[in-house]
Design a protein around this nucleic acid. Sequence first.
DNA 1: ATCCAGGATCTCC
DNA 2: GGAGATCATGGA
Length: 287
Amino acid sequence: MKYTEKNNTIILKELDSFNIEQILECGQCFRFEKIDNMKYEIIAYGKILNIEQSSNGVKLYPCNENEFKNIWYNYFDLERDYSHVKETITKNDDVMKKACEFAPGIRILNQEPWECLISFIISQNNRIPMIKQVIKNISKMYGNEIENERYMFPTVDELRVSDISGLEKCKSGFRAKYILDAVEKVGSGKIDLENLKNFDTNKIKEELLDIKGVGPKVSDCILLFSFGRCEVFPTDVWIKRIMEHFYFNEETTSIPKIHEKAKMKFGKYAGFAQQYLFHYARTILKK
DNA sequence: ATCCAGGATCTCC
DNA sequence: GGAGATCATGGA
């Protein structure tokens, strides 16, 4: 990958395994709007970022070199060699080959832990368009306006003024009480998300599971999407279905068995495998 | 109208 | 410790 900067715009070239549509629409992230074909607006790390991809490369704006190095380089996981990841997980695996060919431009974003935690609490028993709407509502009601009706996701302290009825007005439904429990535990310092980074995966998971509304799947999403633990294999209904269909040839299987198989087949890259599979499954199994 | 969604919890045995 | 109902909300 090479980049140049001019007029507060970063242009990325010779970028391998990068398709902004696949990256954003594959279900890992909720804070973006499609502006046009291969043209999106993202809100993350307190910034609004426009991103536009064409055969000439990927344009990021407004963005200077400092912001690119300090935020977006890591956000888009640009350090990682995704060809190597795909080579590894597709070895002797025709299903994974198809999943990777279906969306070879997926990358796992590195998202902010607090926003990720609340987002995936909201995700339970919900649909992606609805999840996006609830997060947008919460940001508008409790977060700072960056500019022009674009709002930051509220900090823990900003959400401490919220209550059940406010969060229900944001359409969070029965998850409002879960959000409040997360606010209480993180806001009081009982759980220190920044400090958790340094702990091993099982320890982080144990801490996250202490929050009401956070179970095995939600905690795995946070581990994968915010703590860079790419060996975890978040298993939702779609992953369960496609694993049962292609890897077990059975109607039903238990989640521990799925995790066991994922670890055996994909090892330390199971998280990537999960994301290729998720996006693939949602398109082909959705009759 | 009934079913279901990037699940977790509570209740029952 | 495993199966089953329940949880808001809205789109199909």
